Amino acid sequence: MQRVNMIMAESPGLITICLLGYLLSAECTVFLDHENANKILNRPKRYNSGKLEEFVQGNLERECMEEKCSFEEAREVFENTERTTEFWKQYVDGDQCESNPCLNGGSCKDDINSYECWCPFGFEGKNCELDVTCNIKNGRCEQFCKNSADNKVVCSCTEGYRLAENQKSCEPAVPFPCGRVSVSQTSKLTRAETVFPDVDYVNSTEAETILDNITQSTQSFNDFTRVVGGEDAKPGQFPWQVVLNGKVDAFCGGSIVNEKWIVTAAHCVETGVKITVVAGEHNIEETEHTEQKRNVIRIIPHHNYNAAINKYNHDIALLELDEPLVLNSYVTPICIADKEYTNIFLKFGSGYVSGWGRVFHKGRSALVLQYLRVPLVDRATCLRSTKFTIYNNMFCAGFHEGGRDSCQGDSGGPHVTEVEGTSFLTGIISWGEECAMKGKYGIYTKVSRYVNWIKEKTKLT
């Protein structure tokens, strides 16, 4: 034993070699072989497995989906700052455009905790909710729209109204504003409101030439003092309507412009014939205590009207009353817009006519005020429907199939267009061939041609 100890002390290297040989010859039971080890760690190889990531292109799944990435790591994937920024906006807080917040056709661009709407022409605001041009839906104005110097929408209202708090709607500024039905039992019968379409306001006024200088022999019209197929109006439903009495009662109609003036057809009036105007009328054979009678003290036909040349060209006249009318729910003026808007309103496509005229061709006159909704007829169809001249200051309205029309005794009465609950004068009943005849239409004086003249002559002093 002493000898062994001496050998170990003198030859430590020998001992180490012996131990190493023993270990190498022993069977290893701690580690699995290569094949079995792979069965336990069965993990798919990654895209760049075996390579240094710093030297390969980034992978979106590896960089940002398996674990949260930084902007720089995302930049490695896209290799483009702009594309990385677009991805980053949604990656950080989701897609803010998912709810489609942009209105009126706006395009949404996502941002971090926010979004941006790219608005089409005519709109602005956070969600493109603000109209900035009158060309689109009248700028959301209830009545009139004008573009300011910086191309912003400025709404306005006709006389007797003021802008509401929203700067879009119009509200009454006087007790009985024009064009409004205020009798409670008839307010439910107000005709369907007309909503502004998209309009090209630059070209809204037709490029028409008034044929002022045409000389033409007097034409022989049949029954051209021209509501057939209409309905009984309720008291106060058309408070701007008046009836004219002269040699015979209810020979023509008219509309209240203001307390002192009536507008009617020029062919209705004769110099030297006494005319009485009755406002607030409903049943011409009954006294309903809503009527107001006034005498006409002055007749002003349009300066281009000449019955000797043509009885229905420039067929418009103004009547001055001896005493002002007292405005109330049964006696209310009709609204008159400017030339541009009167023309736009007419193009809405349908209007209402009213009167006490004959209820059928050569038949009896109506006792109760009649009204009828009539569609506008395109000019080409209008011209083809008659052998008589249709001037540019006239328009056609009615039904091709016949059966409904204005008729004798309705002449001078109103053709009105309702705009968001307020009625505007767009025409004056003038003439036609018979009444409600198939293929024939009622012919009306186009008020847009005469609004400046009306307003100039009827100013209240």
Rank of each mutant, 00 (worst) to 15 (best):
K347S: 14
K260M: 06
G253V: 13
H289G: 12
K109Y: 04
S406T: 14
G122A: 07
D405A: 04
E231F: 03
S411L: 12
Y161F: 07
P324T: 04
F238N: 03
V154P: 04
V269D: 02
K455N: 12
V416T: 14
K126G: 08
C435G: 08
Y201I: 06
T158R: 00
V257Q: 01
A26N: 01
T186C: 07
Y312V: 09
R46I: 09
E340S: 05
P172W: 03
R62A: 08
D410K: 11
P239Q: 01
E281Q: 12
G229D: 10
W453Q: 00
E340I: 11
V56M: 06
L346F: 09
S430A: 10
T426Y: 01
S385N: 09
T133L: 03
C178K: 01
I136Y: 12
R358T: 12
D405M: 13
G254Q: 00
N38H: 11
L189Y: 12
A37S: 09
P177F: 00
T81S: 09
Q216H: 10
L19S: 01
T81V: 05
C252M: 01
E159Q: 06
M6P: 04
A173I: 12
P333Q: 03
V374H: 02
I344F: 15
N328M: 02
L23H: 02
I429V: 12
F87Y: 15
C18M: 09
N113M: 09
Y441C: 05
K260S: 01
N222Q: 07
N36Q: 08
T342Q: 03
G94E: 10
E171A: 08
V77M: 13
T426L: 01
E340N: 15
A265R: 01
E288D: 12
P175C: 04
P101W: 05
Q219N: 05
D315G: 02
R449N: 15
Y115V: 13
S365L: 03
E76R: 15
I390H: 13
S365I: 14
S350K: 06
C97T: 03
N343Y: 03
E281V: 12
D212P: 04
D33Y: 02
G357F: 11
K455I: 07
Y371K: 10
Q185W: 08
L376V: 12
G94V: 06
C28V: 00
V153H: 10
Y391I: 03
N36G: 08
D232S: 11
D223P: 09
R358N: 08
P414C: 15
E434S: 13
V30R: 12
I210R: 07
V242N: 00
P12C: 09
V92K: 14
G363D: 06
G13D: 03
V277C: 03
E159M: 05
S448K: 02
H314L: 01
T133E: 13
G409R: 10
D95Y: 10
E86R: 15
V242C: 03
T29W: 03
C18V: 09
S220A: 10
N343I: 03
V248Y: 09
E320R: 01
T342E: 11
R358H: 13
I390W: 05
N5D: 04
G363N: 09
E116A: 13
E288F: 06
N245R: 06
N80V: 14
S220G: 09
S70N: 10
Y450P: 00
Q408A: 06
R180S: 04
D150Q: 08
M65R: 05
A26D: 01
F399P: 14
V368S: 05
S184C: 07
F395S: 02
M6L: 12
F395Q: 01
R83G: 15
L367I: 07
D95K: 14
A207H: 09
K68C: 15
K109L: 04
I40C: 14
A37I: 15
N222D: 08
M6N: 09
F78E: 15
A266H: 02
N166K: 02
E129S: 15
C28T: 05
R162P: 01
D131L: 08
K89C: 11
P44H: 04
A265F: 02
K260N: 05
R162T: 10
L130S: 10
M6D: 06
A397V: 14
P375F: 06
N393F: 04
